[in-house]
Design a protein around this nucleic acid. Structure first.
Lengths: 230, 230
DNA sequence: TCAATCGCATTTGCATACACAATCGATCGA
DNA sequence: TCGATCGATTGTGTATGCAAATGCGATTGA
């Protein structure tokens, strides 16, 4: 009440309603609040968000375009069901795209970008020591995105981020194995080594292996925690 | 009038109105009927399609998600402007993804898929002889999509098709140089050779070169036909 | 008892209506 | 004459209403 402005209270209710609903739904799908296969009733969602069906519909259409929900005509929408096979396919795709990115980045990154990446990598050591999963996840994201941008191909970077986000949205079963954290950083280390030597092909192979290791680690987790029926 | 059914006259007015509008707009952007940067007035489009603004809005949102139109909040939408730099970035991305696909396809394709691909490739010879650009374009699409599917990674195949379509939508300046047609087939030939030898890496490199050759050919065309101001 | 069909309820798809924001033009001031 | 501000108009964003289609359940027939 100190300021005279009341048009924006929290800074959260700003922008388009449909965008806010879309972001909220994206989060809920990512966190698993909305389980895969769950029906998405427009009126029900509208009530929950205190809005009308119109912005909800637009949000659903956008999510459908992004592949997070399946929208069958006149039959409503459901959260996209992900089979283990499809998740592995997505992982492989991400791995290959990441491999592309690191190869191009190796050949094209500026000295500034290189030093920034090194600095970022160095920062991950204490995180691994403390075993802070969330912090490492955040670092990991920055590390990979730094590589995307170092390709100096913004379109490719956008694609990489998009496909990675799409995978993350369904990766609510995060890698929470202490051993994996250390191994992840070691793999980063090997990638950094190849980058430093200017060997893009080597960096590419190591990045692919790095991603597939993460996939394997996840698939083990999925196998052991397999829900009945699916 | 022979049959008693009248629910579907042409088979064209079936399905969702928003989908039809989306497809129509996609085509118009691809063919250049809607020039890049053209403003997309919702009411105007609604009138043109004989519909209300609602399905038009949904179509625009989907196109925005696909990257074909840019949608600024409360400021309407315009057909996405493509700079030559961005087009080249897209070409490079497509080239790299195609390179991935052909490498995986080489290692994973079934004998049936291999024979199908060979058959397809053989069919292109007479097309090159006649110099039928449209026919070759159609064949070319089939050839590349056959490779996508042979990766046995449907997600990757979807991504490849999506990014390829997205590029095609802005490639209304098609390659209409007779020489390029022959060279394109020769490059396909070299790729087929590598596939036959089971050398995925070789096939990958040749595919990348193939795509970048097409890009170079296009960039020359763009340079010579550069519009004033942009 | 099982299957098929008819009818109802629910929900989507589209149209229309209204409110607010942004842009453009005009008028006022310097 | 140029700039800025205010107002009007255009157009997007959201809400609501209506019609059609889908899915489900009950009823009827075999």
């Amino acid at each position: 009440m100190a300021s005279g402005f009341e048009t924006e209270d929290d800074g959260d209710d700003r922008g388009l309603l449909s965008d806010r609903i879309r972001n909220a739904l994206t989060d809920e799908i990512a966190t698993g609040t909305l389980a895969a296969g769950a029906a998405l009733d427009e009126q029900q969602l509208a009530d929950r968000f205190g809005a009308s069906r119109t912005p909800v519909r637009e949000a659903l259409r956008q999510l459908a375009a992004g592949g997070l929900v399946e929208l069958r005509a006149r039959r409503g929408g459901v959260v996209a069901r992900m089979t283990p096979e499809r998740i592995m396919e997505m992982f492989e795709t991400v791995a290959e795209i990441e491999a592309i990115c690191v190869r191009l980045a190796t050949y094209r990154m500026t000295p500034l970008e290189r030093s920034h990446l090194i600095e970022l990598h160095d920062l991950s050591e204490p995180i691994v020591e403390t075993g802070d999963f969330d912090a490492y996840d955040s670092f990991n994201r920055q590390f990979h995105e730094a590589i995307y941008h170092a390709t100096h191909n913004s379109f490719l970077a956008e694609q990489a981020i998009a496909v990675r986000n799409r995978l993350n949205a369904f990766r609510r079963t995060q890698l929470r194995q202490g051993e994996r954290l250390r191994r992840s950083r070691d793999e980063h280390e090997a990638i950094m080594q190849a980058i430093a030597e200017g060997d893009g092909e080597m960096a590419s192979r190591r990045m692919r292996a790095h991603m597939l290791n993460a996939a394997t680690s996840l698939s083990r987790f999925i196998e052991t925690n397999k829900p009945a029926g699916v």
